[in-house]
C-alpha cells in the first residue's frame, strides 16, 4: 500500500524529496502533482506533499499563495468552476475526482477541517450540543444518551468548563475562542486521522490564540492524529508543528523539520520571510522588506520568486526550479541551490 502511493505518474520523482522518503511511517495522506485552475488562471502549479501519521505539519505562506485551495481541492470543497489535476491519496483512495458520496464520508470522518472564522462555520440557529451530536451520528452512528455523553466529553476535552450546561448554548452566546473550541470538538467527533486547521486563530485575541494553538497541539499528541496547521504566521506554526512547508505562488518552495527551517532555511523566500517577522526578543534589527508583492497569478516561465529575489540570476527568469533534496528531510526549490552558486 505504501508503495502504491509513490508510483504515480506526476509525483513519483518528487514525493521523496518532500520528506516522506526517509521516514518509514505510512503517510496519512499523500498529495502529488496537485494542480488547480480557475477558468484559465492556474493557482496551484503542482503541489507535492505527504503528511505522516501522527505528525503536526505546518503550511506557511502569504495571502493568496494557495494554502487553503490545496486542502479545499483535496476535500472536494472547491466550486465546480475549479479544474483539478493530480492526486491526493489516503490509503488506496484517491480523493481527487472521487464521488461526492465518498467525499462526504471522508470529510468530517477520516479528515476533519476547521476554519478561521468559527462563527460563520457554526449554524447560528442550532444549539452547540445538537451540532456536535449531529456529527457523532453522521460519523460514528451514535445517538441519544450515548451521543450526549460523548458530546460532553468532547467539550471537556477542548477545555470548555461546565461542559454539560454549555451543550444548550447557541453560538452567539459564546466568545470567539469558545466557538473555535466547539469547532474543534465537532472536528474531533469523527475521530479523524487527519485534522486540517486553516488559520484557526487568526480572528482571535493574542492570549486566546496561544490557548487554542496549544490545545490543538495537546490533542494531536494525545490522540495521535495527524495535524495540518495552515497559517501566514511562521511563529505560530513553529509553536505547534514538527515539520513545515513554505508555499509561494501555488507551489511548495521549501520543506524541512521545523528546527531546520527556522535555523537553517535554504530558500531565499523562507529566509526573507523569517527576516520580515519582528523578533519577539533580543536586539531590534531592521526588518527584511521583500520588494514588491506576492504575484497575483504566476504565469512566468521561471522561478515564481525571481522578481522579488535578491539572489536571482538570469536563469531564474527562464527555467523552473524542481525540488531538490539538500538533507534527509529537507527539500528546496531554488535554481541557485542546484548550481551550488548561492552562498
Amino acid at each position: 500500500m505504501l508503495h502504491k502511493s509513490f508510483h504515480n505518474s506526476a509525483g513519483a520523482a518528487l514525493l521523496p524529496a518532500h520528506g516522506i522518503g526517509a521516514s518509514a511511517t505510512k503517510p496519512a495522506i499523500s498529495i502529488a502533482g496537485l494542480r488547480v485552475a480557475f477558468g484559465d488562471v492556474p493557482v496551484l502549479h503542482g503541489v507535492d506533499l505527504a503528511v505522516n501519521k501522527g505528525e503536526a505539519l505546518g503550511i506557511v505562506g502569504e495571502s493568496g499563495c494557495g494554502k487553503s485551495v490545496t486542502w479545499r481541492a483535496v476535500l472536494g470543497l472547491l466550486p465546480k468552476s475549479a479544474e483539478i489535476g493530480g492526486e491526493a491519496r489516503i490509503g488506496d483512495l484517491d480523493l481527487v475526482g472521487a464521488r461526492q458520496s465518498v467525499l462526504d464520508r471522508v470529510r468530517g470522518g477520516r479528515i476533519a477541517m476547521i476554519f478561521q472564522d468559527p462563527a460563520s462555520a457554526l449554524n447560528p440557529v442550532h444549539r452547540i450540543g445538537a451540532q456536535i451530536t449531529e456529527a457523532l451520528r453522521l460519523h460514528r452512528g451514535l445517538s441519544g444518551a450515548a451521543a450526549r455523553a460523548e458530546a460532553c466529553r468532547l467539550l471537556d476535552q477542548v477545555g470548555i468548563a461546565a461542559a454539560a450546561s454549555r451543550l444548550n448554548a447557541y453560538p452567539h452566546e459564546l466568545s470567539g475562542g469558545q466557538n473555535q473550541r466547539v469547532m474543534i470538538a465537532i472536528a474531533l467527533a469523527g475521530r479523524p486521522e487527519l485534522l486540517i486547521a486553516d488559520e484557526p486563530t487568526t480572528a482571535l485575541d493574542a492570549t486566546v490564540q496561544a490557548q487554542i494553538l496549544l490545545l490543538l497541539k495537546d490533542i494531536q499528541r494525545d490522540t495521535g492524529m495527524a495535524l495540518v496547521m495552515i497559517s501566514h504566521d511562521l511563529a505560530a506554526v513553529a509553536a505547534v508543528c514538527d515539520r513545515a512547508c513554505v508555499m509561494y505562488a501555488g507551489q511548495i518552495v521549501e520543506t524541512a523539520p521545523k528546527h531546520t527551517l527556522l535555523t537553517a532555511p535554504e530558500h531565499p523566500y523562507t529566509r526573507d520571510l523569517i527576516g520580515a517577522i519582528p523578533p519577539s526578543h533580543g536586539p531590534r534589527m531592521r526588518l527584511t522588506a521583500i520588494a514588491g508583492a506576492p504575484p497575483q497569478r504566476n504565469l512566468s516561465p521561471g522561478c515564481a520568486y525571481a522578481p522579488r529575489c535578491r539572489h536571482a540570476i538570469a536563469v531564474c527568469r527562464t527555467s523552473r526550479p524542481e525540488p531538490r533534496q539538500v538533507a534527509a528531510r529537507h527539500s528546496v526549490r531554488c535554481l541557485r541551490l542546484d548550481a551550488g552558486t548561492y552562498q
Binding site: 496561544a210 496549544l214 519577539s280
Partner: peptide
C-alpha cells in the same frame, strides 16, 4: 503569548 522563534510558546502563561 507572543510566539517566539524558534521556540514557540516556551514560557506560556495560560490565562
Amino acid at each position: 503569548a507572543m510566539p517566539r522563534l524558534p521556540g514557540g510558546f516556551d514560557h506560556y502563561v495560560a490565562l
